[in-house]
Design a protein around this nucleic acid. Structure first.
Lengths: 187, 187
DNA sequence: CGCGCGATTGAGTAATTTCAAATCTAGTGG
DNA sequence: CCACTAGATTTGAAATTACTCAATCGCGCG
């Protein structure tokens, strides 16, 4: 478990064993079961999560009670309701397990302490944040330029494993179409 | 001009005058005219831009030659094709002036040097990147949960000044609808 | 005045939604 | 092994929404 996190960080910013031990001391190791909530809409967001194994969904519930998948968080992903996390406000989204999931979590004060005390980690978080920003922008581009059908094909190409792990209903909710429409798409 | 940048950074991370002078030495000061390109799709992306005054559009052109507005960059915004910038690859998007625009620009090596030599700035860039990520996610949520009509109203509420500064055609391209459809929306 | 550009309107077509019904699938108990 | 059920998926049909292509309108500017 620890090794996975170390390798993950090392890919961007190589750390010595001592440095990694220091990093690790800021994290909590947690296991959740399918359908457990890590974050509940309307409540405080204490932690940011690194997914070791399992699968999470970040969901936004609209006024009509309909759920929308803002993001899937797979192995090696970092996820939270970042807006609520960084501003210490109530969650606008929920983070829930699709599968049993193992994470490392870090509270905001530890996140900041770690960033300050080990500049390499601030660099790491900066690069991760940039990548997250870029990923979101690519999703926006796919909404702007592609039909539901094309978005579906892009998703399958990019994350072929999702196909086996989540229901079509959830995929539809991620793509922004009704489950009936998704069911009628080609391929 | 310099004062605007300093105030902007100070809002998140207060700097001494000496520190700011050091920061500023990494930036270039540039003026562009309406319709000028700061970044051209397919070419190298040398810089990231802070908009002092003016207005930019970040556009993605699809296979059919249709332009899509990924983002407007107004006063105090940071913009670039971040993917191409950070990975030193060719631009997938163009950045073009809607109005005459004044910017501070910074090359990647200066960005990295500055981040390393002045940790406060790495902290600043991290916070900015987080905010950018959050903004993109909110835009995704509005695609998932809202009709074209609602997205239009949200945009007007959030950036009422845009309304006077850009053509309806561009607004439509930002919202992901045809200009004819936008023209038929209420309000 | 007349040109050009952006915005609007009209009409037909295509895509998507909604609601309802039918089908499929996996797990359970007889 | 079969019947049964709950949940997910698919299909059908009507209604809505958005798109495209074309024509028209409105206005600023030479």
């Amino acid at each position: 478990m620890k090794e996975k996190l170390k390798e993950h960080i090392d890919k961007l910013i190589p750390l010595t064993d001592d440095e990694f031990a220091f990093v690790l001391s800021h994290f909590k190791f947690e296991k959740y079961h399918k359908n457990d909530f890590l974050i509940q809409q309307g409540e405080d967001v204490d932690d940011c999560y690194y997914v070791v194994t399992g699968l999470l969904k970040l969901i936004y519930m609209d006024q009509g009670g309909k759920q929308h998948i803002v993001s899937f968080a797979m192995e090696d992903w970092w996820e939270s309701d970042f807006s609520a996390y960084f501003t210490q406000s109530k969650a606008k989204m929920s983070l829930q397990c699709i599968e049993n999931t193992v994470v490392f979590s870090i509270g905001l004060s530890d996140y900041q302490k770690l960033s300050t005390e080990l500049p390499k980690m601030e660099r790491f978080f900066l690069q991760k944040s940039n990548l997250g920003h870029i990923a979101s922008q690519n999703r926006i581009i796919s909404f702007l330029t592609s039909s539901a059908n094309e978005r579906y094909e892009q998703l399958l190409k990019q994350y072929p494993t999702l196909f086996q792990r989540v229901s079509k209903t959830l995929l539809a909710s991620y793509l922004g179409v009704s489950r009936e429409t998704l069911s009628r798409l080609s391929s």
